[in-house]
Design a protein around this nucleic acid. Structure first.
Lengths: 359, 359
DNA sequence: GAAATTCCTTGGATCGATTCAAATATAAGC
DNA sequence: GCTTATATTTGAATCGATCCAAGGAATTTC
């Protein structure tokens, strides 16, 4: 019936119910935003009109423009959206970010995209008060875009040389050093490294020089430096250590292990730059009847919860993930125009995936 | 230097650079929104002005109001925000929702809150084009709030009787029936049920009648009906089946098992209304040297990936989670004013946590 | 009863863009 | 040179609210 009067039903605006109730739009707005300052009789009349016309309440779109603040923070990454729910590291980080947001009543918008163009658009048009940028791999593009929005933003886990971007990261060199020393002290002398991306090139065996040369992905580079510096200290010829670069997924990790274990000198210790790789490695080794830590020791990096319940439990370099998330949210919400650059300490967590080198 | 002229630096607006470049704001807008229709010379001039003044690009806040569409969907739940990243079921669902969103370029806003008041505000002020409401437990409040926004929304997994809300759910009765029959056919006769909430009351042992009486939480009620109906069919006196209601967390599941295994008649089969509970149960049983499925069989509900890799792998009633997520996004984005009510089929996945009843 | 308070209400300004009909400039056609 | 077609640009209107200075009515004070 009602729809007969007008073909398309324009959504009801605050002005509509103001007119219907015979008050100014200012008063109508007050009924919703500060009900205590409007006379009860009027308030009821306006509410009744709103009810009668099926008003959905003040549209946040309108409020937003006036208020200026969205009360939400964007979490951006160059990975596809599902990364936030699939990747163990991202999940722990997101859980802590969302806890911090919950505490302050801020919402979370996930910003991401498969391709670069879409990512640019999504970051440019995200309705947020600031960004937390996940820079796990190839995030520098996202950082650039976030910077262009001129909103507060923090880069996570990007050890960018650029002092003008706020960043919260960890000491990758020291962390990698802890892992390498741990294994060396257990007597291991034949190592292999499962590396994260060092360039957008893809995956496969790489040399130390290639990793070093990559200006991007300083996390990868620094972990590599940390590993190799510490191994050298134990008199190991690091030029002989095979390095295999993966895409941090099961497929390429498996390919890497196939490669590494086909070499004449099998390693007794594997340094993996992420727990995700390390856990995939444990699976592969088990399937190939290579015992851990009997034949081969494995040390991961990140400290995700899955590592505590894997078979065997994973020795790893634990990042203070929860702390990083909390600090990132704090940095956005309490942004004062300055740039923060925090380097958090890491912690070696020794579990059962590492043991003495075989005799 | 620049800041000396004005104490507070108002953000630069499109109008500012239009003035600086000596063009109308209409033209300035076109430079960013439809660059191809403005003469190159002018375009460059405007861009130069924007660059010089440090313009961050058109503010989405302004665009939003004009355009009307946010291009983001809200995912709402009455649980805290971290639920999206902690809960196995939610994670799988979110992964599929985010994949569907990625494909269409839509963003995701997570909407949630610890307390009811905050939840109301968050839902009322969320900048989204529609809602997907997670109704796992006590979600009816969120559904009400979403409905008031008069935006398209879909309830997930709420088997609400209200035909006027769009919902995508599963056949809980049939699913529960599959689980119960499977165990009964394996010879089990002594059962226990780990139930989800049936009222906001909390946790503890409950009776069949109590569950039946709860108008809320129809999912819990229907799964219970499915279990008990099928067990009756095998001649089992369902009034003797202990039912323990949990909060779907480790603590209350453990309390439930303590209770159940302290009863004079120990069960040989446990029906859990969620995989999360079932997995916690497996842990508890292992710790108490009760072998699965030798002493006790366990069947879960949901079909989360963790169930495939647990010790032992979990027999469960698998929901088509990915399909549900995809359909939910589709329902929001292609909303045509009608109400969808989809009941999807479930699937019994038999793994190693269920076996013949002990002799 | 006039003046001073207090309490509500009004209507215009504003937030920052987009859109579109109309105006103007430029090029093309005869 | 005049008309017609095409390419750009303009400026007003709009999106949906919030905020605030100013005005009006009711109440209190002297």
């Amino acid at each position: 019936m009602a729809s007969l009067t007008s073909g398309k039903t324009r959504p009801i605006r605050l002005a509509d119910i103001a007119k219907a109730a015979g008050v100014s739009h200012g008063t109508a707005s007050n009924v919703f935003a500060r009900p205590e300052i409007v006379r009860e009789e009027v308030r009821e009349r306006v509410k009744a009109a709103a009810e009668a016309m099926g008003y959905a309440g003040p549209d946040p779109k309108g409020r937003l423009l006036r208020a200026g603040k969205v009360n939400a923070i964007g979490v951006a990454t160059a990975e596809p959206l599902s990364y936030f729910f699939d990747d163990p590291f991202a999940r722990v980080m997101m859980a802590s970010i969302s806890q911090a947001c919950d505490a302050t009543g801020a919402g979370i918008s996930l910003v991401s995209a498969a391709n670069n163009e879409q990512l640019a658009w999504n970051i440019q048009s995200a309705l947020v008060d600031g960004f937390i940028v996940f820079c796990i791999e190839g995030g520098s593009r996202a950082v650039e875009l976030a910077r262009e929005r001129k909103l507060p933003f923090v880069a996570l886990d990007l050890d960018s040389e650029d002092e003008t971007v706020s960043a919260i990261g960890i000491d990758n060199i020291a962390g990698a050093g802890l892992a390498a020393r741990h294994l060396a002290e257990l007597g291991h002398r034949r190592f292999a490294v499962l590396a994260l991306e060092s360039a957008d090139a893809g995956f496969g065996p790489v040399t130390q020089e290639q990793v070093e040369a990559s200006a991007l992905y300083s996390g990868t580079r620094d972990r590599m430096r940390g590993y190799l510096a510490e191994l050298s200290r134990f008199g190991i010829d690091v030029s002989q250590v095979p390095i295999y670069e993966t895409l941090n997924d099961e497929k390429t990790v498996r390919a890497g292990l196939e490669h590494i274990f086909a070499l004449p000198q099998r390693p007794t210790a594997i340094l993996a730059m992420s727990d995700r790789m390390a856990l995939d490695a444990l699976d592969w080794l088990r399937e190939h009847d290579i015992t851990v830590p009997g034949d081969v020791s494995v040390v991961g990096f990140d400290g995700v919860p899955e590592g505590a319940v894997s078979k065997p439990p994973l020795t790893t370099v634990a990042q203070p993930i929860a702390e990083m998330g909390r600090l990132a949210v704090k940095a956005i919400l309490e942004h004062d125009g300055s740039h923060q650059r925090l380097l958090l300490p890491v912690d070696l967590v020794i579990r059962a995936s590492s043991g003495p080198a075989p005799a």
